[in-house]
Nucleic acid binder design. Structure first.
Lengths: 150, 150
DNA sequence: ATAGGGCTTCCCATTGTTGGAAGGTCAAGC
DNA sequence: GCTTGACCTTCCAACAATGGGAAGCCCTAT
């Protein structure tokens, strides 16, 4: 099967399949005499595995670890579980960070009249912190975030 | 004040200050005869504004909108509020996505014995979905995520 | 044989940030 | 006056993961 069919069957784009091969996440595919990549059902199986791990928020590096365990017939499920739980912890950390931002901003927005006057506590708070100390949201979300709006 | 002092005072790195200038987020700074950038307290004020917006998860584009409103003395607070609430909605959307991943993975991890045997429902689920239908977490987190583990 | 769609590689863009190299500038000390 | 070291300048590259596109080869159906 060609790369297009493998992409369709696995849910991983052809672009990404080539990228995963290039970066060593997956072994180099076999080639036809003319240079076309050829994929087996086994390969598609692996690609689907990658796709699902990606859907669960694993990074390529994380997936690398999962694939190693997947292929290791003598693995210990404890190792898999640990990898998974570490990832869950990381997800929860990010969730908390985002939640902190959202609640802070929500508090500020609640304090904003939202009319045609220019005065707005949201801008005031951005100008200088600590002006709007309502709710329970006094904790500042320090520590730079890796989450930005798209 | 030089860029280093402005960086220190604002919490925005010198690198980023130059980047923000290059991309037009902030106006080009004044220069000394020898080419050094010079910043006023007002400039530092603006940089701090940017830093705080960044801490609240705003993208550079989002910050651009906020800065425009900040500088617009005839703004309507309703516009600021709308921008803020849109961002809150986006944050909550991302939170829900991450929460979905985390709970799915947690359910799988709970079903994993975590011992020295190789069989593991986490890997089984990654191989083929729907095998582990425990809890209430049957919904699949489709829609590709822009969140990966670092 | 020719058209079209699929494949190949290579390069570029994204977002926000950091790192480094090569070189100019400034202030302090000798 | 000169050296030294800390600072500044610009330019270039990299990260992670993905998409877009160009130039050119390949395969199949008509």
């Amino acid at each position: 099967m060609n790369i297009g069919a493998a992409a369709q069957a696995s849910g991983v784009s052809a672009k990404m399949i080539r990228y995963y091969e290039e970066t060593g996440l997956i072994p180099a595919a076999q080639r036809t005499a003319s240079g076309y990549r050829v994929y087996s059902e086994q390969d598609v199986h692996m690609l689907r595995f990658i796709r699902r791990a990606r859907d669960l928020g694993f990074s390529v590096e994380g997936i690398r670890g999962l694939l190693d365990l997947w292929r290791d017939q003598s693995r210990h499920s404890a190792d898999v579980k640990q990898l998974a739980l570490e990832h869950v912890a990381e997800l929860r950390r990010k969730i908390a960070e985002l939640e902190d931002m959202a609640s802070t901003l929500e508090t500020l927005a609640r304090a904003c009249h939202g009319n045609d006057r220019p005065d707005c506590p949201i801008l005031s708070e951005l100008e200088a912190p600590g002006k709007v100390e309502s709710d329970s949201t006094t904790r500042r979300s320090r520590s730079a975030s890796r989450f930005r709006a798209g």
